[in-house]
């Protein structure tokens, strides 16, 4: 891989906006850092659960939610750094195989919150390959608009568990912050989903 992620075509904020514009009743876990800001930039929702910590836990949270709510689409939307820290959870999720779970890795090949240091994906580690080897029946890497347009309906509705690496440009973007109080985030999510906190 010779192309630097600063030159990747796809931009994370536009990608996330396009996914969430079609969300319907989808439940969304946003991984620590940029992914949490991205889902907030697309429009904060009580059915978003953005993470201010818990690095490596995004997929596992989404898995527990997907098992508890089999009738709802659940989307784990996170960065490459977060997914690499919790890479074992891809094995756990693949074994449980909830049909309502989709995972999107916004892969800019950088640790975006700490100075844009390279992650392992910058050296060729392939998250889609890991997911496929774990047994995800659908796993794909998306690098351009045409591939994204084809994948969008799958992200929203394909039988899961499905996994998408979306290679996105490494760029510093304005912070768009969700509520910081974890209790508030939990209670608003449960009220919106269950009618009780």
């Amino acid at each position: 891989m010779t192309e630097k992620s600063e030159d990747f075509a796809l931009r994370r904020r536009a990608i996330v906006k396009a996914i969430l514009a079609e969300r319907g009743g989808m439940l969304v876990i946003g991984g620590l850092g940029s992914a949490a800001w991205d889902i907030t930039d697309a429009g904060d929702s009580p059915l978003n659960f953005p993470l201010w910590g818990a690095m490596g836990g995004t997929v596992a949270i989404a898995l527990g939610l997907a098992v508890a709510q089999p009738g709802r689409r659940v989307l784990a939307l996170s960065g490459d750094g977060d997914l690499l820290m919790g890479v074992g959870s891809l094995a756990t999720a693949a074994v449980q195989a909830p049909r309502n779970l989709a995972i999107v890795a916004l892969d800019n090949e950088r640790y975006g919150e700490t100075g844009m240091q390279e992650t392992a994906t910058a050296s060729g580690v392939d998250l889609t390959g890991i997911a496929r080897a774990c047994g995800f029946p659908l796993a794909a890497t998306i690098r351009d608009e045409a591939q994204f347009a084809a994948a969008l309906p799958q992200i929203l509705d394909a039988p899961g568990p499905c996994f998408f690496t979306i290679k996105v440009r490494a760029e510093k973007l304005p912070l768009v912050l969700p509520p910081k109080d974890g209790t508030e985030l939990k209670q608003r999510f449960r009220r919106a989903l269950l009618g009780t906190a």
Binding site: L27, G56, I61, A62, L63, G64, A68
Partner: peptide, 26 residues
């Protein structure tokens, strides 16, 4: 009961937070 084998224990902490968000105890 859904029995869920983990690769490491911290996954279970996160998983059960997600279960609670979805209305289940674990």
């Amino acid at each position: 009961i859904r029995a869920i084998g983990l690769t490491t224990e911290e996954e279970g902490v996160a998983l059960l937070a997600g279960a609670w968000l979805g209305g289940q105890r674990g």
